[in-house]
Design a protein around this nucleic acid. Structure first.
Lengths: 187, 187
DNA sequence: TAATTTATAGAACAGCTGTATAATATTTAG
DNA sequence: CTAAATATTATACAGCTGTTCTATAAATTA
């Protein structure tokens, strides 16, 4: 029981229409009606597959998340045991990933976007931290690892939020340097 | 030129109607029409003052932010020079503040809420960190203080996000302990 | 290929949105 | 207290939303 060809065709049409419309206006200003007109898909059909435009956007989102996962794994391909103090800024690729998909993240971090996307991003980065810790080192076992990952992941997201507020003006390399300095800071 | 009495009356009516409606359904399900019917205010009048329901909600929001500011300042009333390693978990009050306004924050952190509120919270906490640093200690001056504050503020928000995902089950004191442990962790 | 399943189109409906205008009521300022 | 300023109401309108229904087209399966 494979995916129905009709469904694929419909979804592709909607995807493409969305990306086209996104070139001219932000996500929150695109109506379902407009999208369907553009895609030549009946509005009822849209509702058959999705609930809101955001759900459609999510497909695109997940694709980019895959790229993020790859980017983040990067440092571990070079160094076996990771000590932050010797971590080369260049080996962290998260900020470069963001820079690469700048127009996309501009949307994700815009004020009107629902928290959903932020949470997806959060979960993605959190998982990477959790995985990292399992592989590379142990911490004080009275520390709850769920909260620890959340702390770390969102700290980085904090820098990214700030970066987006600065309209991504600084180069990714600058963010990297700052991150390494902050992590190595004695408290 | 004081605030027009009519305006005050209208805004109060809308505020009250909103809080009433919020008892039965989440913010995103409350329509402007419904709100105005409840408040006995003309829909046009609503648009005269606000753009969306969220703008109305923001008044309420700012009130709670004031409480947060007070809570956070708390530790500095006891200790003059703050060293995290000796910071008593009990002296940090942020988590208690969240716990106190649990129903409110449940809304703020729900998936459909726009990022706006998150950003307001973020700015609030960030400012407190910035102020703290100005008063209490200096850091490596090659570290950009804007990004450093963002890192720290959002790290705490990360724990709060996780907490909200756990439906605020753990007591605030647990979050406090975890935070102190994490901060004092040698990297 | 034929029968069955399932996606899509088209149309209709009540309710919401955002905007605009004119008439009216309330408030403020002189 | 009066005149000017301004907030509120009532009404209307085009367009969007979410849902439901029937007929039709397309794909899967046996």
């Amino acid at each position: 029981m494979k995916t129905d060809l009709r469904v694929m065709k419909t979804k592709e049409a909607l995807q493409e229409a969305l990306l086209t419309l996104l070139k001219n206006k932000p996500l929150e200003l695109i109506s379902i009606s407009e999208l369907c007109r553009k895609a030549k898909v009946n509005r009822g059909t849209f509702y058959f597959h999705y609930g809101q435009i955001e759900d459609l956007y999510e497909d695109y989102f997940r694709e980019i998340m895959r790229d993020l996962a790859n980017c983040y794994q990067e440092p571990y391909r070079h160094v076996v045991k990771l000590k932050t103090s010797e971590l080369d800024p260049k080996t962290i690729k998260v900020f470069h990933h963001i820079e690469k998909y700048k127009p996309f993240y501009r949307i994700v971090f815009s004020k009107n976007m629902p928290l959903t996307y932020y949470y997806l991003l959060f979960e993605e980065i959190k998982n990477l931290f959790t995985k990292d810790r399992e592989v590379n080192y142990q911490v004080d076992n009275t520390i709850n690892s769920e909260y620890f990952s959340s702390y770390q992941a969102n700290a980085i997201l904090g820098m990214i939020i700030q970066w987006s507020m600065n309209d991504f003006k600084q180069p990714a390399s600058f963010l990297n340097e700052q991150l390494v300095k902050i992590i190595n800071l004695e408290v």
